[in-house]
Computed example of a mutant assay.
Amino acid sequence: MPPYADAIASFWKGRLASGPRAAERPSLQHLLGNASVPFDLMRTRTQISALTGAIRGDGRHILLIPGLMASEQRMEPLRAVLNAAGYSAHGWGMGRNFGPKPDSLAQIDRRVDQIQRETGSKLILVGWSLGGLFAREYAKFATHKVSGVVTMGTPFSGDPRANHAWRLYQLVSGFPVDRPPFACDREQKPPVPTVALWSRRDGVILPECARGRAGERDRAIEVDCTHMGFAASPEGILAVGKALEAMRV
């Protein structure tokens, strides 16, 4: 071996060690656990009376924002329970969520204005996954129209690639996951009350990215559900009710 071989190996070892590392992601076991969503929906349908009785609505108006590639219908189990419990939950009116566009916040603003013309009330934004990022950024964009934000399995903290969804996000939206088409500081807390729902069993989003750190949200609540279960399972829906109650003034 040439006398300089050790020096060359040491040089490249140092360069490689200091380079960017692949982001940590949830386990495959937890990812596969998301296949249970049909059973979550079935459990919610059979427990709807109990869920409605366990959530104490107070008439506040709520805007529900779906996750990446999810339609408004995907939020219907949650919306039905919240409305039956005494809240006034609204769809976001933009159909399926195909990722951020340059005018996404402006479109949400038009929907919020429409609801406020009818109700005269500020809205609480409840966003699932990517929908939670939209909710957080809109609350910074139009703070005077928002009274709070609840995120469900939303990756607002840490590495934006610490999940199993970022490649799909880039494919669908056409934008890099770390450079959305509008001003965005994921980790900056909106200037309204914020509650982050997160799960160790999420499977799609790394739990600590959805839980956030102190200063990035006001409160974090652990939920025993999968990522797909946040808006479909009894546990996810009850957690939203708990988050809304925590924002009650």
Rank of each mutant, 00 (worst) to 15 (best):
H227N: 03
A165K: 06
C225E: 10
P160S: 07
Q188S: 03
R217T: 15
Q188T: 10
G212R: 06
R179Q: 14
V192L: 09
C184N: 12
V146M: 04
V223M: 03
P193V: 12
T226W: 00
T194W: 04
R211C: 02
Q188K: 15
G158W: 01
G153E: 09
V195Q: 03
D178N: 15
F141Q: 00
P193E: 09
F230Q: 08
T226Y: 04
A214N: 09
E235G: 15
D218H: 09
R161I: 10
P191A: 13
G229A: 10
R211H: 02
T143W: 08
G203H: 00
H144Q: 14
V223C: 05
F230E: 08
G148W: 08
T226E: 01
R186V: 06
I205F: 06
V204G: 11
R219Y: 08
A183C: 03
H144R: 07
M152L: 15
A139Q: 09
R213P: 01
W166P: 02
D159L: 06
E208T: 03
I221W: 00
P207R: 01
W198C: 04
E235F: 03
R186Y: 06
L206C: 05
P207W: 05
G229F: 07
D178Q: 11
T143L: 04
A220W: 05
D185T: 12
F156T: 03
P191Q: 13
D185M: 09
L197N: 04
H144Y: 01
K140R: 10
H164Y: 13
G153M: 09
T226N: 07
A210H: 01
R200I: 09
V172I: 15
S173H: 07
T143N: 01
R167V: 15
L168V: 15
I221K: 07
S157L: 02
V149A: 03
E216F: 09
H164P: 08
H144C: 03
G174P: 13
G148C: 05
Y169E: 11
R213F: 00
V146R: 02
E187G: 07
V150Y: 06
I221G: 05
R186I: 03
F230N: 00
T226R: 06
G203P: 05
G215C: 12
A196H: 08
V192I: 13
P155K: 04
E187Y: 09
D218N: 08
P181W: 06
L171F: 14
V149W: 00
K145I: 02
R200D: 14
